[in-house]
Computed example of a mutant assay.
Amino acid sequence: GYHAEVDRVVRQLAERLSRRHRRRQRRARRGLPDLKRTLRESVGHDAVPFRLHWRHRRRERGTVFVVCDLSSSVSRIARFLLLFLHRLTDVLPEVRTFGFSNRAGELSASLRTQDPVRAVEEALFVWGKGSTDYGQALFDFRDLVGRDLDHRSVVVFLGDARGNYFPPRLDVMREISRRARQVFWLNPEPADRWGEGDSLMRHYAPFCLHVDRCARLQDIERFADRLLTLSR
């Protein structure tokens, strides 16, 4: 059926991206040549480098928090993103996923333990109902993650930022941005619509490192590539 075909295409793209980044991770683990140490130890060998030493970079890995609008207007691209991230678990650091339409809930356990296609469809059914309220979702997300959101964290929002004229809770968005290492926003709508009607995108954008249009599977692949590069 349609959902199985979507998962097949997502799996192929994710496996290709995963292979590419596993190669990069192997090179990164080897590090860079440590010329000072190599030359220092070559003194006892008539200044001929006897052994090449490597300098390893240390980077603290943090959690990637993914917060998806699961309402009907965004459900198609949200489905792609959730399945894509699930297929990258071997190369991504810890990922925690959340879904909302108005109230937000965590999806991490079900995506980790159930069949991914079934888990995503269940999440869309449970959390994709009701009038979309971004302010309430931000408030819920902040409370759900608590102190786990810190200077190592990356937060990724996926949604059209159309809040049905509910309070946007910019104070909460500001706090999330201040506490996290980086915040990204993926919006399926064209950029020229971000200021129209009940769109809150212009209000949330200043708290994000990047705001990108994300309407196709190729857009998700490109963003995942960037995310994996940041997470090495």
Score class of each variant (00 low, 15 high):
F184P: 04
L149R: 09
R96G: 00
A137D: 06
A47M: 15
G146R: 11
V120Q: 02
A28M: 01
L124T: 05
A123F: 11
H56P: 10
G163R: 04
S177K: 03
R147E: 12
L217G: 01
F100S: 05
A191M: 07
G31S: 06
Y204R: 00
R22C: 04
G1E: 05
H203F: 06
D212I: 08
V67C: 07
S72P: 11
E121Q: 14
R216W: 07
R22Q: 15
S71W: 04
L209P: 03
Q218I: 01
W127C: 02
I176Q: 06
Q136Y: 00
H53R: 15
V74R: 10
R51M: 07
E15S: 04
L111F: 10
E41Q: 15
R178Y: 10
V145Y: 06
G195P: 06
K36A: 10
L32I: 04
F98A: 11
E60P: 01
R193W: 03
D143C: 11
F98D: 02
S42M: 02
W185R: 07
N164H: 11
H86A: 10
R57Q: 15
V154E: 05
Q114P: 00
M173F: 15
V120C: 03
E196R: 15
F139D: 11
L149E: 06
D150T: 00
H45Y: 09
